[in-house]
Amino acid sequence: MNMVRNRVCGAVALVLIGAAAARPAMALASTEADWRKTAPADGWASAEGGTSGGAAATAERVFRVKDIAGLRQALAGKDGAARIVVVEGTIDGTGGIPFASAEDQATRVQIRVPSNTTLVGLDKASGLVNANLVLKGVQNVIVRNLSIETPWDAYPVWDPKDGPTGHWNSEYDGVTIDDSRHVWVDHVLITDGRHTDDQNGTANGQEVQHHDGALDIKKASDYITVSWSVFRLHDKNNLIGHSDKESADAGHLRTTFHHNLFENVTQRAPRVRYGQVHLYNNVHIGSKTHAVYRYQYSHGLGVESSLISEANLFEIDGTKSVCDVVKSFGGTRYEDRGSLINGLPMDTQAACKDYGAGLQPAGWKPPYPYAPDKTEGLMAAVKAGAGPQ
């Protein structure tokens, strides 16, 4: 595969990778300064030394990619040297060749991102389809300015022992963060896109499941910030901590979500086990009567979880109180400051049958500097500023 060095944007040198590498470089919508940004101080990704991704990459380690072969080549290698990978246009994980079997999909759908990497979209038209970004056992990764369509699992598995009557299960998230630390996800869009759940069909008396998570954080991952991103048209959105039995997650899974838009997301925004999770200035829009993505809840409290919610907006048709947007799965440590549910203050002391003895203080404070915006004007600001730019 050819590699051609080109001088663009002043000082930055790009290594063009892929079938179209010899094509003259076009003007870039984003700049080298954008690609070299590090995680700001307003979330968990800034803790314990911070998250810089590929900010220190040399000119020879800045790659521009246009297809799946080029993307895999740019991400190959485990030498630990910083790299920046710039995605131009929409990259199809199939490379134009449909998945032929479950084994073929498992081999080709996952895209591994190594440590000390920044993966960034060139502009708002840049992104991935038929691909699952996987951060597994890595550190110091930044993913920014990408549109990601959640993979459609063409070969879901029927488990007759799942639940009282059996259940379909699928694999592959939009982004999977597994046993990884210091990650910043920023200005990303994750959505079911062309393959919404009304296309699922039924078998064995159950709706067939073709999607897993949008962005899941598991296996003792830690120091993560998800900011200014859009989650749209998805069911099981953000799972933090994959199992009640995974006690090794205790003391980890520290995550911040701020200034994100959750639009017509059914549940898990997020659903948390074990982690200390800070949620501020997020906007949730949905309806309990949506034709496809009927709203169930936003914040899920699992075993040993502890959540702090601040100045979030919930504009959800059919909801009235904290009982509608916060659901307990065995956890009760949750506190809120200044959030609104359809324009009314969230009352965490409301009587909810789901909480037993009631919600308890979170028991911790965010260790980083941040200043939540007021809820007035937040809806417009997040709608305009979240997602790829």
Rank of each mutant, 00 (worst) to 15 (best):
R64D: 08
R64P: 04
R64N: 13
R64E: 12
V65W: 01
K66P: 02
D67N: 01
D67P: 03
D67I: 06
I68F: 08
A69C: 13
A69D: 15
A69S: 14
G70Q: 11
G70R: 12
L71D: 11
L71C: 05
L71G: 03
R72H: 08
R72T: 08
Q73V: 07
A74D: 13
A74V: 07
A74L: 03
L75K: 09
L75D: 02
A76W: 00
G77Y: 02
G77L: 01
G77M: 12
G77T: 11
K78S: 14
K78N: 13
K78A: 15
K78V: 09
K78T: 12
K78E: 09
K78R: 15
D79E: 10
D79C: 01
D79T: 00
G80Q: 00
A81W: 06
A81D: 03
A81R: 03
A81E: 08
A82G: 03
A82H: 02
A82L: 04
A82V: 09
I84G: 04
I84Q: 09
V85G: 02
V85W: 02
V86G: 14
V86I: 14
V86K: 07
V86R: 08
V86Y: 07
V87I: 13
V87G: 06
E88N: 09
E88Q: 15
G89P: 00
G89Y: 10
T90M: 14
T90L: 12
I91V: 12
I91S: 07
I91L: 05
D92H: 05
D92F: 06
G93H: 03
T94D: 05
G95A: 06
I97N: 02
I97M: 03
P98A: 11
P98D: 04
P98V: 04
P98K: 08
A100D: 05
S101N: 14
S101W: 03
S101Q: 06
S101P: 03
S101V: 15
S101L: 13
S101E: 10
A102Q: 15
E103H: 03
E103A: 15
E103W: 07
E103L: 14
D104S: 07
D104V: 01
Q105Y: 05
Q105L: 12
Q105P: 12
A106L: 10
T107M: 15
T107H: 02
T107N: 11
T107K: 11
R108K: 15
V109I: 15
V109C: 14
Q110L: 07
Q110W: 02
Q110M: 12
